[in-house]
Structure formats: structure tokens, C-alpha cells
Amino acid sequence: MPARVTRRGLGLLGLSAAAPALAAPAAGGLAAIARARGITFGAAAQHSLLTGDAAYAAAFAAEAGLLVPEWEAKWADLQPEEGRFDTAPLDGLLSWAQERAMPVRGHALVWHNAMPDWLGRALAEGRERALSVMAAHFDKVLAHTRLRIRDWDVVNEPVANPPGSDVPQAGEGTLRDTPWLRALGPAYIDTALRMARERDATLRLTLNEYGIEEDTPDAAEKRRRLLDLLRGLLERGAPLDAVGIQAHLQLRRPFSPAPFAAFLAELRRMGLAVLITEMDIREAPDAPASLPARDALVAERAYAFVSTALEGGARSVLTWGLSDRYSWLRQEPAVALGPDRSHRGLPLDEEWRRKPMWQALARAFQGG
């Protein structure tokens, strides 16, 4: 999952927090283009930047029709100490969105990262303690956001990466080894979904996963693992409404529409909605030196992927941020291109200008 990108981190990136204002009118943004075909376009946002960087806020007002909080709804931010909830940053983001009639989706209730230290210790104390802290968190958070968030990533990244992946993982069967799995066994996913449904009967419950998009043996195996998990959940009557496909795409990994379309068709046969939840594009280490050539490759992948997803039934597409200025692809050393250049994997460049990726998304939304 992407690392936190904040204003404080900009000094490391060689950028100032100031940027030129975005002049594009909201009527011509990606959200409006997508909406014309019944599609929702949105992006991950940070409350501190929405309120502290005018260009950032202008870009989201112009381009996005849906927000997801990058960090404000994760456990470490919402409940940093047991029983002490801090909803102020999330409330600020929700208010900003509400003033602009933007829905917000929640991310994420159960995840193995962004866990405060106390939660890790509590889960290590055994099953009853784990159930208790999960229930208490769901009670508070779902009641607090009930009128403003109608879709949550209830469980995030439960499937283990198979051999051949960048970071293979072991777990119980094909599930990722996490504190939740160790405390509650494989049924922790069923339990989280049931707890969420009990607290809000009309909430859309989503399971969110990555590494399932591209045409590689490890992605094919992870798709198989995810489908097996989903079939088991549905057979057991676990409440599940949607699957989120993160789409942190990598140009060094091939993409073919056919296997991805077949996967989407299987999800739809199960009766599950499909969302693209965290899209960005990581360039290959041997990316061309020329910016136009690099942008053309990114745009080509963006169009191929999003058009396939839309044809397969996805109706929501979110990118993980809007501008390269604030992308985790700039800040995270494990994925950075190098000291003298950075990924161009979001629709807007560092100065908030629309790039060929923006045009590719617009063309996919328009169906052309």
C-alpha cells in the first residue's frame, strides 16, 4: 500500500507547497466527462492538503466526483490509542466533500498496515480480545460515518502474493499472514463483513485487493486465489457487495485485456460490483528519457486498462491522488525511479497540468 505523502515530505522531493492555481473549470473535468456515461471518477485525497494547498483543492474540485481518504479513515489515525478516537481530520475531509456534493468512500476498516502499536499487542492476546477490539472500532466508526460514507473497504489486501511476485508472502493457505489472521484464523474476513453488516444493513461492503491486474503468472495465480476466497465467502453467506481492484499498475509487467476481462466477468457472475480503487502507473526502470515518450506509454496503459475495466462492468474509477506532485511513487524509495527523475503515473503533472494520461482516461470514459 502506498506510503504516506504529506506537505512535510515535500522538502525531500525538492518541491515547495506552493503551486500555480488550476484554471480548468469543473464542467470540463474527468468527473463530468465520466458522469455523462454513468461512470464515477474520483481520487484519494488528504484533508491537510485540501485545506492547506489551494492548487491541490482546486484540482480536486475541478476533476474529482468522489473522494477516498488516503489516511484519515485508517485505524492508526482514527484510534491511535485504545478507546481514544480522533475523527477530526476525517470529519474535515467529509465536510469539504459535502460542501461540493461529493460522496466519500471509506478505506479501510481491517488492514495489516496502519495499525497503532496497541492494536498489534491486543491482537496477540488472543481471539476474544481481537473480536472485542474489532467490534468496538466498528461500533464507533460506522456509527460516526453512517450518514456520510456509504461504501467501505471492510477488508484490505487479505490474499497472499504467490511465488513469482515482487514480494511473495506466506500465510494460512492462500491468505496473507497478518495479525488478524493469527488472532482469528481465516474466518476473520467473514467476521469483519458480518460485523459491518450488523451495524449498517445498507452499507456497501467491499473487499479491496492488489496485484491481480496484469498478464503474468503470479497475477493469474493471485486472481485464482481471490476468486476462491470470494466463492467461499459467498457460499458461507458472508455479506459482500463489491470487489475493489487497486490497480497500482507497472509498465514493466505486461497487460492483456482478455485475461483481465475474464476475471471481471467471473466477479460479475458472482453478483459483485467492481470498483477501480487506487489506480496509478509505475514506469519501468528503463523508461525512455523523453517526457513525451514516457507519457505516451503511461497513457497507452491507462487507456487499455480502464477501457477494459469499464467494458467489464466497473462503474467507479479512482486514482491514488491526482498530481505527480503528491504521489507516493515519488516518495517511496522502494518504487522510485531514481534521484533525477520520478514517475509520471497520475493524470496531472507536478504543476497541475493535464497530461496524456488525463486524455487517455477521458477517452476511456467517453467510450472512444
Score class of each variant (00 low, 15 high):
131 L>N: 04
326 Y>I: 13
300 E>F: 13
124 A>C: 14
340 D>V: 14
240 L>D: 01
277 T>R: 00
322 L>T: 07
59 A>V: 06
148 R>M: 10
246 Q>Y: 03
275 L>M: 14
288 P>G: 02
4 R>F: 05
140 K>Q: 01
151 D>I: 15
279 M>W: 11
9 G>H: 12
317 V>S: 09
26 A>V: 10
280 D>G: 15
219 A>I: 08
246 Q>R: 00
351 E>I: 04
205 L>E: 02
277 T>K: 00
327 S>F: 06
120 G>F: 08
4 R>T: 06
36 A>K: 02
239 P>Y: 08
296 A>G: 14
350 E>W: 04
101 A>K: 11
180 W>P: 07
333 P>G: 08
155 V>G: 09
125 E>T: 14
36 A>C: 01
226 L>W: 04
77 D>V: 15
169 Q>E: 15
241 D>R: 03
61 A>T: 15
253 R>W: 10
243 V>Y: 06
350 E>D: 01
77 D>N: 11
160 A>G: 05
155 V>P: 12
294 R>Y: 06
191 T>Q: 06
38 G>M: 13
16 S>N: 13
348 L>E: 13
326 Y>T: 12
363 R>P: 03
241 D>M: 07
6 T>N: 00
254 P>T: 07
18 A>E: 01
356 P>G: 04
62 A>N: 00
293 A>G: 09
140 K>A: 10
154 V>T: 11
80 P>T: 03
207 L>I: 12
260 F>A: 13
25 P>E: 00
166 D>N: 14
271 G>P: 08
259 P>K: 04
338 G>L: 09
72 E>K: 01
163 P>Q: 10
326 Y>D: 08
341 R>S: 13
263 F>I: 09
260 F>Q: 11
226 L>V: 13
5 V>H: 06
215 D>Q: 04
282 R>S: 11
319 T>R: 02
52 G>M: 15
323 S>D: 02
243 V>E: 04
167 V>S: 12
293 A>Q: 12
225 R>V: 07
180 W>Q: 05
33 I>P: 08
46 Q>T: 14
252 R>C: 01
356 P>D: 02
257 P>I: 03
68 V>T: 06
231 R>N: 10
272 L>H: 05
42 G>H: 09
284 A>M: 15
17 A>F: 12
329 L>Q: 02
324 D>E: 09
135 A>E: 09
95 S>D: 04
274 V>E: 02
73 A>I: 02
122 A>F: 11
123 L>T: 15
326 Y>G: 08
64 A>L: 04
226 L>I: 05
293 A>M: 08
99 E>D: 01
344 R>K: 12
308 T>P: 14
163 P>R: 13
127 R>K: 10
141 V>Q: 03
230 L>H: 11
109 L>E: 03
335 V>R: 02
172 E>L: 13
